[in-house]
Simulated assay, not measured.
Amino acid sequence: MDMITDATEVARHEAQRAVQNAKAKGGTPGGEYLTFRLGAEEYGIDILRVQEIRSYEQPTRIANAPAFIKGVVNLRGVIVPIVDLRLKLGCESAEYNTFTVVIVLNVRGRVVGAVVDSVSDVLELAPDAIKPAPELSSGQIDTSYITGIGSVAERMLILMDIEALMSSEEMGLMDAAAI
Score class of each variant (00 low, 15 high):
Glu163Phe: 01
Gly27Glu: 08
His13Pro: 00
Ile149Lys: 02
Ala65Lys: 01
Thr147Asp: 04
Lys131Glu: 12
Lys25Ala: 13
Val122Leu: 15
Gln51Cys: 10
Val115Asp: 03
Val73Pro: 13
Leu87Cys: 01
Tyr56Gln: 08
Lys23Leu: 14
Lys131Cys: 05
Asn74Lys: 05
Leu165His: 02
Val119Phe: 08
Pro134Tyr: 05
Ser151Gly: 07
Gly27Thr: 04
Glu124Gly: 14
Ser168Gln: 06
Val104Ser: 00
Ile53Trp: 00
Tyr33Pro: 00
Thr100Arg: 06
Ala22Asp: 08
Ser144Val: 02
Pro81Asp: 06
Ile149Cys: 00
Leu136Gly: 10
Met160Glu: 02
Gly150Phe: 00
Gly150Cys: 01
Leu173Arg: 09
Leu75Glu: 07
Leu165Met: 13
Ile146Ser: 01
Ser118Gly: 12
Ile62Tyr: 01
Met3Glu: 14
Thr60Gln: 12
Val107Thr: 14
Gly30Ser: 06
Met171Trp: 04
Asp6Arg: 15
Pro66Arg: 03
Arg61Ser: 10
Glu32Ser: 07
Ala94Tyr: 03
Met174Trp: 05
Ser55Trp: 10
Asn64Tyr: 09
Ala94Gln: 04
Ser55Leu: 13
Gly30Phe: 02
Ile149Arg: 01
Val10Ile: 14
Ala133Trp: 04
Arg49Leu: 13
Ala178Gln: 14
Gly90Gln: 05
Leu136Gln: 09
Ala94Gly: 10
Arg49Met: 09
Gly30Lys: 07
Gly150His: 01
Leu165Pro: 00
Lys25Leu: 12
Lys88Val: 06
Met174Phe: 12
Lys70Ser: 14
Ile146Val: 15
Glu42Lys: 11
Leu173Met: 07
Arg49Tyr: 11
Ser137Ile: 13
Pro66Ser: 01
Ala67Asp: 13
Asp161Ala: 05
Ala24His: 09
Gly31Arg: 03
Glu52Asn: 11
Phe36Gln: 06
Phe36Pro: 12
Met160Gln: 09
Val19Thr: 06
Gly71Asn: 06
Ser55Gly: 13
Ile62Gln: 01
Gly139Phe: 07
Asp161Asn: 15
Gly172Arg: 03
Ile162Gly: 03
Thr100Lys: 03
Arg155Asp: 13
Val83Tyr: 06
Ile82Gly: 09
Asn21Arg: 14
Ala164Trp: 00
Leu105Arg: 05
Leu173Phe: 07
Leu38Asn: 12
Ala126Cys: 05
His13Glu: 15
Ala65Leu: 01
His13Ile: 08
Thr147Tyr: 05
Met174Gly: 07
Gly27Val: 02
Leu34Gly: 06
Ser118Asn: 14
Asp84Lys: 10
Leu48Tyr: 04
Ile158Asp: 00
Pro127Glu: 13
Val102Asn: 13
